[in-house]
Design a protein around this nucleic acid. Structure first.
Length: 199
DNA sequence: TCTAGGATCGGCT
DNA sequence: GCCGATCCTAGAT
């Protein structure tokens, strides 16, 4: 199974975002292995993107990971409750990233159910950024984890079924504060992704 | 120090 | 469709 090398991530963020669709996030912990096929992502374009944490060159303790090398995880806490998993792109000094917004579990289903609640419908187990992190036991402990090294406990692989997904673009979610950038079509979904209320 | 607000989610109406 | 949870971050003082 092909594991993307660092060069995969050292490319323009939108390209990486589209290519991450259909890939599988694998997460190994002491509890076992779980994996989710990515169906929805968003691109965040760094210093010139008002929706991005590093807009205007903001470089703080939280965003430090985004300023570093490509191919590592950027994980932050939102609303004091939920973790969000991002993939750092481009390279040193270019603080851009792809937010993994959602996917469908393809391995370790029992583990995912245990983490998300036994009664959760399968389609709802990881169909949001916070849910996906809960399903894969990702929190800020994974901030800075190297996605090119399976020893980090989190990495991507190609889908063995391999079919190139149909991709459509849409405005990003929850970034109304970003003015016209909120309308930029930087959210990418596959045909399998659940359409959201906003379309 | 203090304060406002957030790349969300689930429960309730 | 609306709203509260919950706490960290960033910017202001």
């Amino acid at each position: 199974m092909f594991v993307p090398t660092r060069g995969f991530y050292q490319r323009p963020t939108v390209e990486v975002a589209r290519d991450l669709l259909g890939k599988i996030v694998v997460r190994a912990t002491g509890d076992g292995v779980a994996a989710v096929r990515v169906t929805e992502v968003e691109a965040y374009l760094g210093e010139d993107d008002p929706a991005c944490h590093t807009f205007g060159g903001r470089r703080t303790r939280r965003t430090e990971t985004m300023w570093g090398r490509a191919g590592v995880a950027y994980v932050y806490l939102i609303y004091g409750i939920h973790s969000c998993l991002n993939v750092v792109t481009v390279g040193e000094g270019a603080p851009e990233a792809v937010l993994i917004r959602g996917g469908v579990p393809v391995a370790g289903l029992d583990l995912v159910r245990r983490r998300r609640g036994a009664g959760t419908p399968p389609a709802r187990l990881s169909d949001g950024p916070g849910k996906l992190c809960q399903a894969l036991a990702v929190d800020r402990g994974q901030d800075g984890a190297d996605l090119c090294d399976s020893g980090s406990g989190i990495w991507f692989v190609d889908d063995p079924e391999g079919a190139k997904p149909v991709i459509r673009a849409a405005p990003r979610i929850g970034v109304d504060y970003a003015g016209e950038a909120a309308a930029w079509p930087l959210r990418f979904l596959t045909d399998r992704a659940e359409p959201s209320a906003s379309g």
